[in-house]
Design a protein around this nucleic acid. Structure first.
Ligand SMILES: [Mn+2]
Ligand SMILES: [Mn+2]
Ligand SMILES: [Zn+2]
Ligand SMILES: [Zn+2]
Lengths: 146, 146
DNA sequence: CTTAAAAAAGCAACAATGTTGCAAAAAGCC
DNA sequence: GGCTTTTTGCAACATTGTTGCTTTTTTAAG
């Protein structure tokens, strides 16, 4: 049963990689599958903890960088020097990310979630500033923790 | 002339420290004065570049931490593992920060600004989530760079 | 299936960043 | 000035991120 779910994630990972014209390797499959099984966003450290025995730290860094470059995952800003990564649900591609959802960090479980349904608001900037990308990060208590 | 401006910043720094019941030391005065002369937010590295010969790296870390704890400066989240710090204009105090303005990062000059006049919008969260603090970071081109 | 070319992974060495404990120095207070 | 408290500097260490190079794996072609 659990095996089947896991196998499915592996399968799914492989499809995502092929769809993005990335060669299919063990580490990429593993890391993508890890993203798929995760509810929230993950950090480089999270992956390292799970896979340090299987893959080199450097490989994890390079894999994450590749995924960001190719539009498979996006980064989420934090104020504590620990970038978090999450799968792009939208149709992000090689150079461009089009994620317009907000992010939520739970004060209790410290997990970071993509709230895909909550769109970033329009921000009215002072004269002279032109807006590109808008990031919104909300801190609070998530629905599982309250 | 320039001397006078600098002296004034030193003076101002001293007052801020006293007002916040912090002992007045060279490094604190220097770092606060640096914040005051800066238009945008600064990183630990920025300070280190300017003052590595005068103060120990560790002192800079500890000073920044103290300033954040005491509500003199606030942090600004980034997606590149480089926390930036800016002076609190509002009446932030010991445990609590009440900055509700948004932040702007210029793609060209890479400077980070507090847009004190732009208040963070209300965010409508899905059922079950309760919102605490909201951070908005806008990327684009600043008024000096366009 | 075999093979050649291209891509990725592993390894080692290094750089940068952040933390901790402790002794010396400076600041605050009377 | 002298005493107490706080801050600093220093050294050692831990964590995190980067780079060059070699080996291994993947891909695509035959
Ligand atoms: Mn997201
Ligand atoms: Mn600010
Ligand atoms: Zn939670
Ligand atoms: Zn600019």
């Amino acid at each position: 049963m659990k095996q089947a779910v896991k196998a499915n994630r592996e399968q799914q990972s492989e499809e995502i990689l092929k769809h993005n014209k990335l060669s299919v390797t063990d580490s990429r499959k593993f890391i993508l599958a890890f993203f798929l099984q995760q509810k929230g966003a993950i950090s480089h450290g999270d992956i390292e903890k799970k896979a340090a025995d299987r893959f080199d730290r450097v490989t994890i860094y390079r894999t994450l960088q590749t995924f960001v470059d190719r539009g498979l995952v996006h980064t989420i800003p934090t104020a504590d020097n620990s970038i978090r990564y999450a799968l792009c649900k939208d149709d992000c591609g090689k150079g461009e990310h089009h994620d317009h959802h907000i992010h939520f960090i739970c004060d209790k479980c410290r997990q970071t979630f993509c709230l895909d349904d909550v769109v970033t608001p329009e921000i009215r900037l002072p004269r002279g500033y032109s807006a590109g990308h808008v990031e919104v990060v909300v801190e609070g208590v998530c629905k599982d923790c309250r």
